[in-house]
């Protein structure tokens, strides 16, 4: 059993070893091994050329990764915290995200880094930015919740011909462990985490663990689906589930307004209206920055109690 953090490192190592086009870029990722130690030991194995420390220049890091991808490399760019991707937004969104559509040239690159709240990181070290990037056509968004998935999905992300944003919830890094295989896991496949008959909770990332805990309280009533990839989205899997249970609850840590839940809610109402036996419900964070003080942050996070209460109400509907 290895931690999710070790699984990510293992995926990076296997890709570096198996494909000499793979290179890593990031701040303090070489000798220091990165702020969270994800890349520890990799520079010794693969050298400074392929595990390259960069200056504090997010826009240049992503821009250079795009250029390197165009000449055949497969760069993996680490953001020290995913919040700092805001400083490289333009290159990712306007160059990488739109190039294949505009002129047929893709960029095989991954931007990865720690996201998410729950560790008192405050407003700039806790954000869940997925919907910002989901709104942009041309960027795949992967968000694993287990060590196995982190390993397999990262390997696929690195080999994917298009830009992938790979989100790693920092709360999970050292808290969860799993048996990790040696195979990539294809992007775009959701996972059924728990079978239930009366209600589908659709979730991803750290929230997937909370959802599974909560579902246990409800015996065989609550089903949990972990999206794993937000783009491409496994619509078939979640539609099949909703058709069976006839009730759906969308649960995530990112803010409610225009979060993943908003999009799924719209799709389900548009396409599965006649299957629904209740309103499509969202449990998500409020529309405020992530607060720092632990009590406030706990109140801000859409936690187990809130989810359980919402499940109870929806089941009774």
């Amino acid at each position: 059993m290895i931690t999710m953090l070790e699984a990510i490192r293992q995926a990076l190592r296997d890709e570096l070893a198996g494909d000499d086009k793979v290179v890593l870029l990031g701040q303090d990722i070489g000798d220091f091994g990165g702020a969270f130690k994800v890349t520890q030991g990799l520079v010794e194995e693969f050298g400074e050329q392929r595990v390259a420390d960069t200056p504090i220049s997010e826009s240049a890091m992503i821009g250079a990764a795009i250029g390197a991808a165009m000449v055949g490399l497969k760069p993996v760019v680490e953001m020290q915290f995913i919040d700092f991707l805001a400083c490289g937004y333009n290159q990712l969104v306007n160059f990488a995200g739109k190039m294949r559509y505009r002129w047929g040239q893709g960029a095989s690159l991954v931007v990865r880094g720690p996201c998410g709240a729950g560790v008192s990181g405050s407003a700039f070290h806790s954000q869940s930015p997925e919907s910002t990037y989901l709104c942009v056509p041309g960027i795949k968004v992967v968000y694993p919740s287990t060590a196995e998935d982190a390993y397999g999905l990262l390997r696929s992300a690195i080999q994917d011909p298009d830009p992938v944003l790979f989100l790693e919830h920092k709360f999970l890094y050292r808290r969860i462990k799993g048996e990790v295989g040696h195979q990539p896991i294809p992007l775009g496949k959701a996972a059924l985490r728990r079978r239930g008959e009366k209600l589908s909770v659709i979730t991803y990332g750290a929230s997937s663990h909370t959802a599974q805990e909560v579902a246990e309280q409800f015996g065989d009533q609550v089903e949990v689906i972990d999206l794993r990839c937000l783009q491409p989205l496994d619509e078939a899997c979640l539609f099949e589930s909703v058709k069976r249970t006839n009730k759906v609850l969308l649960y995530h840590e990112a803010q409610k307004t225009l979060g993943m839940g908003a999009e799924l809610s719209a799709r389900i109402s548009e396409q599965l209206f006649e299957y629904l036996d209740g309103p499509v419900v969202r449990v998500a964070a409020p529309d405020s920055p992530v607060p720092f003080s632990p009590n406030l942050e706990k109140a801000w996070l859409p936690g187990a109690e809130q989810l359980a209460e919402a499940c109870r109400r929806l089941l009774a509907y």
């Binding site: 400083c87 407003a123 003080s293």
Partner: peptide, 30 residues
């Protein structure tokens, strides 16, 4: 992270300020 802090626990360490004192609260992005 106390309630009596200048940000009432909303933000951390030196992330605070007050226009009256001519102090602008920084963000983390360097």
């Amino acid at each position: 992270a106390k309630a009596t802090s200048p940000t009432a626990g909303r933000d951390c360490n030196t992330h605070f300020g007050d226009i009256q004192r001519g102090v602008v609260a920084p963000i983390s992005m360097l």
